[in-house]
Design a protein around this nucleic acid. Structure first.
Lengths: 190, 190
DNA sequence: TATTGTACTTAACCTACATCAAGACCATTT
DNA sequence: AAATGGTCTTGATGTAGGTTAAGTACAATA
C-alpha cells in the first residue's frame, strides 16, 4: 500500500482490509498537472474521477457572456470532476484547471465500473461520498441565497485560513458569486 | 406489488426482480400529510427518507432574521428529506411542509440500514440517486450565481408549466432567492 | 351577507454588488 | 534595468432586487 492519503479517505467512510484496498488502489493511475494547465477542457469527455494528493484544482463554467464561474475549489484529500460528463459519457461543460502544481490519482470510468462489480463495498463508499457531497451542495445553495457575500467569505477563511495564500482572489470571488472588485472592497472593510 | 410509482422510480436507476422489489416495498410505510401541515419540524430528528406518491412538499430553513429559505420543492416521484439530520441522527435544521394534501412512502433509518445489508443493490440505487442529486444541486449553484432571477424563473415554468397553479408565488420566489414582490414584478415584465 | 385571512400586486425609496476605468504592486522575462 | 503581465485596489456611477407600506382579489368561514 503506497497511497496513504487515499487509504485514509476510504477508511473515513467504510471499513476495508488492506488487501481490499490494494485491489482498489491498483485501479488508480497517478497524474500530474502543472500550475495553470488544464486537466479537463470544455467539450472533452470527463474520463476520470480525480482524487487530489497534493495541490489545488478548480472547476469552472464559462457562461454566455464569457464570465467564468467557479464551481468548486478542491484541495488535498478532495475529489473533483465533471460528474455529469463522467456519468453520461457526454462532452463536459466545465473545465478543470490547476492552481498549483498538482498530484492526482485518477480512476477511469471503466476501472470504476469494474470496481463496482469486483469490490461491492465501492458502491457503499461512493454512496456515502455523494450523500455528503449533496448535503454540502445544499448547504452552499442555502448560504448563497440567504447569507451576504461578506459572511460567506468569512466562513471560507475560517475553514481554510491559508486560502488567500494559495488561491488568487479572482477565483475566490467567483466561487462566492461576486466580482474581484467587490471581494477586494469586502477585505478592506474587515 | 402495489406501489407502481416507487417501482418505476427504482427501475429507472437499477434492474431488479419483482421479488426483490416486494422485499424493498415491504420496508416502506405509507403516510399522509394534510395541506399546510408540517411533516418535519426544526429540532426533530429526520427519521425517514420520503418518497412522494402524490402531492407536494417543500423543505425550508429559517435564517437568523426569521426569513424562510426554500431548499427544495418536491413533486410526485421525488425524494425529499433533511439528509444531514437523517444521516447524522441529529436534530434537523430544516422543516418540511405539505403544499397540498400529500401521500408519501416513508423509509426509516433502521429499515434502510437493514435494506443495505439484505438487498445489496440498494447501495447502488442510492449511490445513483445521490450522484444525480449532487449534479442537480451543482447546476442550481451555478445558475444561482450566473443567471438572473428572471431567467431562472422562466426555466422553472418551462420545466413545470403547472407550478404556478400548485405552488404559491411566495415559495417559488424563496426558491429563487428573491422576495415575492420581486417575482411579482418579474411576472409583470414577461 | 359580512368577515376574516391568504395570495398577490404596485409604488417609492434603499442597498449590495456590478460595471467601467484607472492605477499600484510585484514577479518574471528580456 | 526595463518591459511585460498577472494580481489586487480604488473610485465613480449603474442596476437588480430588497424594504416598507399600501393596496386589490378572492376563497373560506361565520
Amino acid at each position: 500500500m503506497t497511497q496513504e492519503l487515499l487509504y485514509k479517505n476510504f477508511k473515513s467512510k467504510i471499513s476495508l482490509t488492506e488487501e481490499e484496498f490494494c485491489l482498489i488502489e491498483s485501479k488508480f493511475e497517478p497524474g500530474f498537472i502543472k500550475k495553470k494547465k488544464d486537466f479537463l477542457r470544455v467539450g472533452e469527455i470527463a474520463n476520470s474521477m480525480v482524487f487530489i494528493n497534493k495541490g489545488i484544482l478548480r472547476s469552472y463554467k464559462t457562461d454566455s457572456k464569457g464570465n467564468e464561474n467557479v464551481i468548486q475549489i478542491a484541495l488535498e484529500d478532495y475529489w473533483i470532476g465533471d460528474l455529469y460528463s463522467f456519468l453520461s459519457r457526454t462532452p463536459s461543460t466545465m473545465a478543470i484547471e490547476a492552481l498549483e502544481d498538482t498530484e492526482v490519482l485518477l480512476l477511469s470510468f471503466y476501472n470504476l465500473e469494474r470496481l463496482y462489480l469486483d469490490v461491492p463495498i465501492m458502491e457503499r463508499f461512493f454512496r456515502k461520498l455523494y450523500e455528503r457531497a449533496y448535503v454540502t451542495a445544499q448547504d452552499r445553495i442555502n448560504s448563497t441565497l440567504s447569507v451576504s457575500a461578506e459572511q460567506r467569505y468569512l466562513e471560507i477563511i475560517k475553514a481554510h485560513p491559508d486560502i488567500n495564500k494559495r488561491v488568487p482572489l479572482i477565483h475566490i470571488a467567483s466561487y462566492l458569486g461576486i466580482t474581484p472588485e467587490s471581494l477586494s472592497r469586502i477585505r478592506k472593510n474587515i
